[in-house]
Amino acid sequence: MANDGIVYVIDDDEAARHSLEFLLDCAGIRVRAFTSADAFLAAAPPLGGACVVTDVRMPGRSGIELVEEMKRRGARVPVIVITGHADVPLAIQAMHAGVADFIEKPFDDEAMLDAIRKALATQQSDEAARAERQSVVDRIASLSGRERDVMEGLVRGDANKAIAFDLGISARTVEVYRANVMLKMQAKTLSELVRMVTIARFS
Rank of each mutant, 00 (worst) to 15 (best):
A2W: 12
N3L: 06
D4L: 09
G5H: 11
V7W: 09
Y8S: 05
V9A: 10
V9S: 10
I10E: 05
D11T: 12
D12T: 14
E14N: 10
A15N: 04
A15K: 07
R17C: 05
L20P: 00
E21C: 10
F22G: 08
L23A: 12
L23V: 14
L24C: 09
C26S: 09
A27F: 12
A27V: 03
A27R: 02
R30T: 15
R30E: 13
R32K: 15
R32C: 11
R32W: 13
A37F: 14
A39G: 06
L41K: 03
A42R: 15
L47G: 03
G48H: 15
A50W: 13
A50S: 14
C51P: 06
V52S: 07
V53A: 14
M58H: 14
M58N: 14
M58T: 13
R61K: 15
E65V: 06
E65Y: 04
L66W: 07
R72L: 08
R73C: 13
V79S: 07
I82H: 13
G84W: 02
H85S: 06
D87V: 03
V88S: 01
P89F: 05
P89W: 06
L90F: 05
Q93F: 01
A94V: 08
A94S: 05
H96Q: 15
G98W: 08
V99L: 00
A100P: 09
A100F: 15
D101C: 13
K105A: 00
F107P: 07
F107K: 03
F107I: 08
D109C: 10
D109H: 15
A111Y: 04
I116S: 11
R117W: 10
L120W: 12
A121D: 13
Q124S: 11
D126R: 07
R130N: 04
A131Y: 06
R133D: 00
Q134E: 03
S135G: 04
V136W: 00
V137E: 01
V137D: 00
V137N: 08
D138A: 13
A141V: 05
G145K: 04
R146W: 05
E147D: 07
D149K: 10
M151K: 01
V155K: 11
V155G: 02
R156F: 10
G157I: 03
D158H: 14
K161T: 13
A164C: 15
F165R: 15
L167A: 11
I169R: 11
R172K: 09
T173H: 14
V174I: 02
E175Q: 15
E175Y: 12
V176R: 10
V176G: 00
N180A: 07
N180F: 02
M185G: 06
Q186M: 05
A187H: 09
L190C: 10
S191N: 15
L193C: 05
L193W: 04
R195Q: 12
R195H: 11
I199L: 13
I199V: 13
I199D: 01
A200M: 01
A200H: 03
S203F: 04
